[in-house]
Design a protein around this nucleic acid. Structure first.
Lengths: 117, 117
DNA sequence: TCGATTGTTCGATAATCCCGGTACAATTGG
DNA sequence: CCAATTGTACCGGGATTATCGAACAATCGA
């Protein structure tokens, strides 16, 4: 099984923003951005999602919006953030979102540092 | 009538992203970002929205997510982008989104410059 | 080969979103 | 005061979204 991904030129910022404007998907992208190799199940377990089909839905949204690559490899799907494409189309956007998400997470934990680095 | 706006610390990036992940709201924010004084009707006319109540809905989403101020002034509502708050919470995010939106608009017009400045 | 792993597709459901129409409230200008 | 302007509140319909369970397909390891 192979997936259809939008070309870099077909990515639209509204799609990216609405894809990332969801807590589950934003958390998933943060995991991918942190590096390492990820498949569907590993992210699902880390996020504490219960149903596989729910995660399948989120992968499709992220894939269709151009945020991730999803490559079958054996019986797994490797998940990779499309960082180069996003940086090329929207310089600074991904970094701003990721560090913003860290800021929010720190606030929600009650941190007082004001920094998310 | 006065509106409830989230404090700067209550703004959450997921809300901001999902608010801006809508073509009408993104276009409205682009108008506000371009400067000048705006009320509901002027934006509605510029965007070609038909129903006032539809736009009221979008203002509420933008307001609740912390993207805009909406201040009653006489019989109008003045609409102002919360640029300082957004820049403070999410440095670079708003600029990246706005210039990304320009990039997309240029692509959709068939421009070949690759620049959105 | 057989069982376990991985993840999709499909169907269902509840919630949410988008949109427009109508009615209504507040303000302003004549 | 009265009419026009401005914009919200409320309601309803239609579309989209989020979630989950069940069934299925493909692959890998023993």
């Amino acid at each position: 099984m192979t997936f259809r991904h939008p070309d870099r030129d077909q990515i639209r910022i509204e799609d990216v923003l609405s894809a990332l404007g969801n807590p589950v998907r934003l958390a998933a992208v943060r995991l991918l951005a942190a590096g390492g190799e990820h498949n569907c199940t590993s992210v699902l377990n880390t996020l504490g999602i219960t149903a596989k089909s729910t995660m399948t839905h989120h992968w499709r949204v992220l894939r269709d919006s151009g945020v991730i690559w999803q490559q079958p490899s054996g019986r797994e799907n490797l998940l990779v953030l499309r960082r180069e494409d996003l940086d090329a189309r929207y310089p600074g956007l991904l970094d701003a979102i990721l560090s913003g998400a860290r800021t929010d997470a720190a606030l929600d934990r009650g941190d007082r540092t004001g920094s998310a680095a």
